Structures are given as structure tokens and as C-alpha cells.
Simulated scan of single mutants.
Amino acid sequence: MTYRSFRSLEDLERTGSTARILNLLKVYRENGKEQEWIEKPLFVNRELNTSIIIKHRLRQNEHDRFFAPRKNATKIVIPIEKSDLKTGGRYIFVNQINFEDVMQEQFGITRDSQDLVVLDIMDKLPSLDPFLLKERLSRSNINPASCYFALSDSDLQAMHDFVKVEITPLVKLSMEDPNAETRSIDRMAAMILSNAPGANNDTLGKTLRLNPSQFQEGVFSWKGFLYYKWSLGALLKDISGVADRITNVTPIGAMDSASRDYISRSRKFLRKEIGRACLEVRNTIKIYETAYSALTVDGNPSAFKNFLLEAPALFDQLGEQIGVIEHIVSFSKHRFGPRSASITAEELMDILMDFEMSLRRQDIDDLG
């Protein structure tokens, strides 16, 4: 199958990775000669390891490619010519009907290949956010080179500091020696971020009466909530500026009345829907905050237990919501920034359509 939006493919390649896009072609161009990239590839298959992987909102004519109903899919785009993305690319959806047969036929990837395991992990995650992808792969003892994950040391430290502040009320609940508090907070933060078993985690799991599997999955999703809550702070600082960029960017060249009308309507729709999407993210995070407050303030562990049991499903919902916002913020900064190249009306409409598709709710999609 051919990827039809060649202008979009070029822009995806230039933009780099976001929560919705894992740009392995750009990773290869920037790191392909490094020893770590050579020795610790994300995918063994060379074509996969230079592909562009996208979290894609399924269109009406794409739902029949899967056995079970789903809103989103993970799309693998293989550029036909890596040096000229205008030639387009081939694509396949992860876990579509006959997926393993197609992968073996097109790429020579057998059913027992680790590459299929990595793709399945990506498909099960709500976004391709590097922090969560790295953590989930690590749980399966898959540890690719660090260049695949755009995480700076300062980002990791900031995330660690945020978690320490967040879990302090929980640690204080179980502390009798105030002098040991700082050490315990550091240890528990490290355990949560690594998802490793430890005394504090084991004790919390037993207190909440969760079996090890339930607790481990719940803690991973809790970590996701913490990460997304931390990420949201930075996104909210950018989102009003992004809405302004979308509203004010002026395309070059001739533009007919139909294009002008569509761009005007789309800008109004996007400003409204971006605000709604941010509110939905806040409301989902509030579910966690309410349950955590019930545990740490009211001494009610059952509310947090219920949150951990529901967290995997909520985590998927939150990841989808915040992934869309992060994609729009990242792409808008790249394409509508002060140093960006001029944009035609046709390209602007393509981008606005992509943003609209990402933001539209499933109940709206179903009406179409």
C-alpha cells in the first residue's frame, strides 16, 4: 500500500519524533555511523529501522483492516526512496489482518522475530512517547541504543524531581523516623521510575491487596499518569501560542474562495477543539489526583486500589489525549515558527486536516 500524502511524509521526516511519530529515518541519518546505533538497533530489520512509525487515527474506510474495532492503529511507513521522500512510501498497519504473513512476505521477518515483539509493544501503548516506550521495552528486556529516545539528562532529572514531590505524602504516611524521609522518598521515586520491585512497592501492593501482576501493571500506568502530568505543564505553556500560530499563519500564492473558507472554518474548529482536548486531559488526570488524595489525605486505600485497577485503561485514554496535543504543539512549532519556510494554501489545508482528524472525537467520527 502506498502512503498518499507525500508532502506530509516530507514534513514528518523533517519534524522528527513526537508522541505520535517515531522517526527512525531521522535517527538513522543523525546516528547511523555511531557504534551504539549499530550494536543496539531498535529493529534488527534494516528497513524497519529506517522507517517512520505513526500513531494513526483510523478513517472510516480503514476499519475493515482489523478483526476487532479500534479507533487508532500503528502505521509503519517505509520510504520508497530515502533520499527523495516525494516518491512516497509503502505502509502497513501493525496487527492488521494477515499482519505476520505480510511482514514475512515483504520484509522476511519470521513469526518468532523480536521485531514483531517490539511492534506489538508499540501498538499496545497509547502513544510513542519516548519515556514510556523506553520503559515498556525495558520491561521486556529490550534495551535499544539511547539515540532512539529523545530524552535528555535534564528531562530525566526533572521527571525524577517531579515524582519525588508527588510521592512525598505517600512516603510520609509510612514513616516513623523523619530523618529517614529524604532517603525513602529517593528510593521510592527510583523504584517507581524503574518499575523495579522493592520494599516500599511490595508493602504498598500488600496494603492495597493487589496481586503482583495487578500491582505491576497498575504502577506502570501510574508512572504514565505521573509522566503525563509532568509533561502537561510544559504543553499548557505552549498551547495558546500554538493556537495563535494556527490562526495567524498566512499561506503564499493564489487561493480560491473554497480554500479560503475551509481554512477559516478549520482555524475556528481547531481553536475550540484544542481547548476541549486540554480540558479532557485535565479531567482524566483529576481521576488520579482524587484517588491519590483519598489515600494520602483521607486514609482511604480502596480508592487508590480502584484507580490502579482501572489505570491501564485510563492510561490508554490519557496517552491518546495528550499525544494529540503534543503532536500539534511539536508540529506547529516546526512548521509555523518564525524561521519556518513559507507555506502554500494546499499544504496548510493538509496540515489543518491532519490536526482536525487527530482531534475529532470517536462519536463525531461515527456520524460521518
Rank of each mutant, 00 (worst) to 15 (best):
G32L: 08
G32K: 07
G32W: 07
K33F: 13
K33R: 15
Q35D: 14
E36Q: 12
W37N: 02
K40I: 05
K40D: 07
P41Q: 07
P41F: 04
P41Y: 05
L42M: 12
F43L: 08
V44S: 10
N45A: 05
R46Q: 14
L48S: 01
N49E: 11
S51G: 09
S51M: 07
S51Q: 07
S51D: 08
I52W: 05
I52D: 03
I53C: 07
I54D: 07
H56V: 03
H56P: 02
L58Q: 01
R59L: 12
N61C: 05
N61G: 06
E62Y: 04
H63V: 07
F66E: 04
F66P: 00
F67S: 12
P69R: 06
T74G: 02
K75D: 06
I76S: 00
V77I: 13
V77M: 02
I78K: 07
I78H: 07
I78E: 04
P79Y: 06
I80Y: 14
E81K: 14
K82T: 14
D84C: 10
D84Y: 09
L85R: 03
K86L: 11
K86A: 12
T87M: 11
R90W: 10
R90I: 06
N95Q: 15
I97A: 06
E100N: 11
M103W: 02
Q104A: 08
E105A: 14
Q106W: 10
T110H: 15
T110I: 13
T110D: 13
Q114W: 11
Q114H: 12
D115C: 05
D115I: 03
D115L: 03
D115A: 06
L116Y: 04
V117Y: 10
V118L: 08
V118T: 09
V118W: 01
I121Y: 01
I121L: 02
I121H: 00
M122H: 05
K124E: 12
L125M: 09
L125H: 00
P126F: 02
L128A: 05
D129S: 11
P130S: 10
F131K: 00
F131H: 01
K134V: 04
E135Q: 06
N141W: 09
I142N: 00
N143E: 11
P144I: 04
A145W: 02
S146H: 09
S146I: 08
Y148N: 04
Y148K: 04
Y148D: 04
Y148A: 04
F149H: 02
L151A: 10
L151R: 13
S152E: 12
D155F: 12
Q157I: 08
K164S: 14
K164E: 13
V165K: 14
V165C: 09
V165S: 10
V165M: 11
E166Y: 15
E166T: 15
T168S: 15
P169L: 10
K172Y: 06
L173P: 02
S174I: 15
M175E: 15
M175P: 08
